[in-house]
C-alpha cells in the first residue's frame, strides 16, 4: 500500500468558498479535481501540502452548455455529451484514447488542462528519488534531464485537452481572489516545468469556452504513444483550419507533449495561411513543425524519434483536416 500524506480535506460548495479556504491555508494547499493526477503525486510524496481543497462539490464548475465546459466536468461526461461532440467532433477521438476509461470517469477537464508536468526523474517514489537522485522540480538542486539547469525544469506537458481547445480558439475563465478574468487558452501556459502557467495559486478554472465560429473549423488531434490505453502522449499535434475550398484561410497548430507546455506554433501557422493545402504544403508544414520541436529525454521514447514523429503527426492532422482518410492502425478484433 502506498501511503498518502496527512492533510486536511476541505469540501467547499462554491467557488468563492473554495478561494476563501485557499487564502486561509497559509501553510500551502492544493485544489483537488478528480484526483487522478494529484493523488498519484501525493502518494509519491511529490510537493505535498497540508490542505487539500476538493472542487468536486461545486455546482458552478459542473456546467456544460453550448461550447462552454465547466472545469469540474469529468472527461467521461464530455465524452457522453452528444451535442458537444457533434459541434466539435475532434474531441471524440481525443477523449476515447485519453488515459483510460476509468481515469476519464473521475478526471476533470481542468485537471487535464493542469495535469502536472511529467518526467522519468520526477514521477518516482521518495525511495526511488533517494536512490536515483532528486530533481529540480522536487527538492533537488538541478534538472536531471538538462544537466546544469538550476532554474528551469524540463518536465513534459502531458495533457491532451488543452492543445485541442487552443487550436479551436478556446478561452479560459478563471476565478480568483480579485474576481474573474478571461484569457485565451493559448496565453495561459508559461514555459517552465515548475511554473507551468500564469494561473495564480488561488485561482480556479471555472470553465473553458469555445467561440461559436469554432464549430466551423476543421480540427484534428494526433496523439502518439505506444499503447492506446493508459499512456500519456509521447508527443501530439493539434491542428485546426478554416478552408476555402482547398485554400487555407485560417490555420492553428500546437505541438504537444514535446516541452513543458503545449507549444502554440503561430509563426509556422501564419506562414501557410492562404496556401493551398496540397501534399507539398502538408510536407512543408510537417517539416517546419518537426524542426521547431525540441523534445528532451523526459519520457519513454528517444527525443530524436519524438521529434521526427512531430512531423508525421502534423501531416496526419492536416490530411485529416483536408478530408483524407487517415489510416490509424486499428486494433485487431479479438477472436
Amino acid at each position: 500500500m502506498m501511503i498518502l500524506p496527512e492533510f486536511e480535506l476541505a469540501r467547499p460548495r462554491s467557488v468563492d468558498e473554495a478561494i476563501g479556504v485557499a487564502r486561509a491555508a497559509t501553510d500551502g494547499f492544493d485544489y483537488l479535481g478528480g484526483g487522478t493526477d494529484l493523488l498519484c503525486n501525493y502518494k509519491w510524496g511529490l510537493n505535498t501540502n497540508p490542505t487539500v481543497i476538493s472542487l468536486r462539490h461545486i455546482g458552478e464548475l459542473q456546467r456544460m452548455a453550448d461550447g462552454s465546459v465547466g472545469g469540474g466536468v469529468t472527461l467521461a461526461a464530455i465524452e457522453k455529451d452528444a451535442d458537444f461532440l457533434h459541434d466539435f467532433p475532434v474531441f471524440r477521438r481525443t477523449l476515447d484514447r485519453l488515459a483510460s476509461p476509468l481515469i476519464r470517469q473521475t478526471g476533470t477537464l481542468a485537471g487535464n488542462i493542469l495535469v502536472d508536468t511529467r518526467c522519468i526523474w520526477l514521477n518516482q517514489s521518495l525511495f526511488a528519488r533517494k536512490a536515483l537522485g532528486k530533481c529540480l522540480k522536487a527538492d533537488g538542486p538541478e534538472c536531471r534531464v538538462v544537466k546544469g539547469s538550476i532554474d528551469r525544469c524540463y518536465a513534459n506537458y502531458s495533457g491532451d485537452m488543452a492543445p485541442v481547445f487552443m487550436v479551436l480558439g478556446g478561452t479560459m475563465r478563471l476565478a480568483g481572489p480579485d474576481g474573474e478574468r478571461t484569457l485565451l487558452l493559448r496565453d495561459f501556459f508559461a514555459l517552465d516545468g515548475i511554473r507551468r502557467n500564469v494561473k495564480q495559486k488561488e485561482e480556479i478554472i471555472v470553465s473553458l469556452d469555445l467561440p461559436s465560429d469554432a464549430k466551423t473549423l476543421r480540427a484534428s488531434y494526433q496523439k502518439f504513444r505506444v499503447r492506446e490505453a493508459w499512456d500519456f502522449p509521447e508527443l501530439a499535434v493539434a491542428a485546426s483550419a478554416r478552408m476555402d475550398g482547398d485554400r487555407i484561410e485560417e490555420l492553428s497548430l500546437v505541438a504537444n507533449a514535446v516541452a513543458s507546455i503545449p507549444l502554440w506554433m503561430d509563426e509556422i501557422a501564419a506562414k501557410y495561411r492562404g496556401e493551398t493545402l496540397s501534399d507539398a504544403t502538408i510536407d512543408a508544414i510537417a517539416e517546419d513543425m518537426r524542426k521547431a520541436a525540441k523534445p528532451v529525454k523526459a519520457t519513454l521514447l528517444p527525443p530524436g524519434y519524438r521529434k521526427a514523429m512531430v512531423g508525421v503527426m502534423t501531416a496526419r492532422a492536416l490530411r485529416e483536416i483536408r478530408g483524407d482518410v487517415v489510416t490509424e492502425k486499428q486494433s485487431g478484433e479479438a477472436a
Binding site: 522519468i120 514521477n123 518516482q124 517514489s125 526511488a128 536512490a131 536515483l132 505506444v226 499503447r227 492506446e228 490505453a229 493508459w230 499512456d231 500519456f232 519513454l300 486494433s331 485487431g332 478484433e333 479479438a334 477472436a335
Partner: peptide, 24 residues
C-alpha cells in the same frame, strides 16, 4: 542499477487494443 519504471504506467503491459485476434 536503479529501476526507473517501477509502476504499471511505465512498465507497459499490453492493453486490449494492442492484443490481436488470437486463434488457439
Amino acid at each position: 542499477g536503479r529501476i526507473t519504471n517501477p509502476n504499471l504506467l511505465d512498465y507497459k503491459v499490453l492493453s486490449p487494443f494492442e492484443t490481436p485476434a488470437m486463434k488457439v
